[in-house]
């Protein structure tokens, strides 16, 4: 798999408060390096999560602001990228809308992002993904883009493994129903399959 998800569950909500008397945090060049190196990857992740470049950009910015706040308190074993990705997934679900609230305009291309998707199946599927509720979409992205196990997804989203499975199942049902050709319809029980997924990596 591409990345190692080594953050402790609940890290987001358990970072310790600033110590007494801590005042100003100087900019950290390692943070800037992290953003420069991983910004594009986070945008790609944000794009598949949100489905459009505007919300993707907002998700990334908001997650990075939170990461920046936590940066001095991250322990060496914490993985900042996991932290950012977890934040993005949670933000995406939390009926979260931050469009331009800081008044930063991103001059983003309009209408281009569908063009390079090949016509046919993938395009239909991408469009069908837009019809999923946020949590279902997040679960799908975490499973099929991030390649996380159900246990890991449960940790990222702070939900039970059973909920992860039921959300995936419902999402797949919806996607299948939304796709035009019924040729590849498979029995519903296959949709719950965890075959090939190690629960503890």
């Amino acid at each position: 798999m591409r990345r190692c998800n080594s953050f402790p569950a609940g890290l987001l909500w358990e970072v310790k408060q600033p110590t007494k008397g801590e005042k100003h945090v100087e900019p950290d060049s390692r943070f800037a390096e992290f953003v420069a190196e991983r910004g594009d990857a986070l945008l790609r992740y944000g794009y598949v999560l949100a489905g459009n470049p505007h919300d993707a950009a907002d998700l990334v910015q908001e997650a990075l602001v939170k990461l920046r706040a936590a940066w001095p308190r991250l322990r060496s074993k914490d993985n900042p990228e996991s932290y950012a990705r977890t934040t993005m997934a949670r933000l995406h679900i939390a009926t979260w809308r931050l469009r331009r609230r800081e008044h930063l305009a991103w001059a983003l291309p309009e209408g281009e992002h569908h063009d390079a998707l090949p016509a046919g199946d993938e395009r239909d599927l991408w469009q069908a993904l837009a019809g999923l509720p946020r949590r279902q979409r997040a679960v799908v992205v975490l499973r099929y883009y991030e390649q996380l196990t159900d246990t890991e997804i449960a940790g990222v989203l702070g939900i039970s493994r059973g909920t992860v499975r039921s959300q995936v199942s419902r999402a797949l049902d919806k996607l299948r129903a939304a796709l035009p050709p019924p040729d590849d319809r498979v029995p519903a029980r296959h949709l719950h399959s965890d075959a090939g997924r190690g629960e503890a990596r």
């Binding site: 800037a32 598949v48 990334v60 998707l117």
Partner: peptide, 17 residues
């Protein structure tokens, strides 16, 4: 599809940090 779609994401601006 998700991996292909990800290639359509915009680039992070150099000013992001």
């Amino acid at each position: 599809t998700l991996n292909r779609a990800a290639t359509q994401a915009p680039h992070a601006p150099g000013t992001l940090a």
